[in-house]
């Protein structure tokens, strides 16, 4: 096992933990934080591969992912605030209007 494999495995562990957070938590804010964790896990893999292949593109990509994540957080939190205003709740299970 080399360092890159280790870091990539670490990245996948973090990713799965984030995914479980998204799937199992009910608070919109926590789900959102879990999404950030998943993004971060992906970033970690990028950086690991960038080091492995001695190439800067991976790092540049991470830079872009971070920017997009920042934009996403701004909009996502605005959505949560808006939903909270009408529903008085941050529980995503309360938003089940699409139930068939």
């Amino acid at each position: 096992m080399d360092a890159t494999s280790f870091v990539v495995f670490l990245s996948s562990v973090l990713f799965v933990i984030g995914a479980l957070g998204v799937l199992l938590r009910r608070n919109a804010l926590l789900i959102f934080m879990s999404v950030e964790l998943m993004l971060n896990a992906a970033n970690l893999a990028f950086v690991a591969f960038a080091q492995r292949w001695a190439h800067l593109t991976g790092q540049v990509f991470v830079f872009f992912v971070m920017t997009v994540a920042a934009a996403e957080v701004a909009v996502g939190l605005a959505l949560i605030v808006t939903i909270f205003r009408t529903k008085r709740s941050t529980n995503v299970d309360d938003l089940a209007q699409l139930r068939g």
Binding site: L23, I31, V92, D93, A96, Q97, L98, R99, G100
Partner: peptide, 13 residues
């Protein structure tokens, strides 16, 4: 088919 539509975002996820 509608049974598949639980309405819970987590479930879709």
């Amino acid at each position: 088919a509608r049974a598949a539509q639980t309405g819970f975002v987590r479930n879709y996820g």
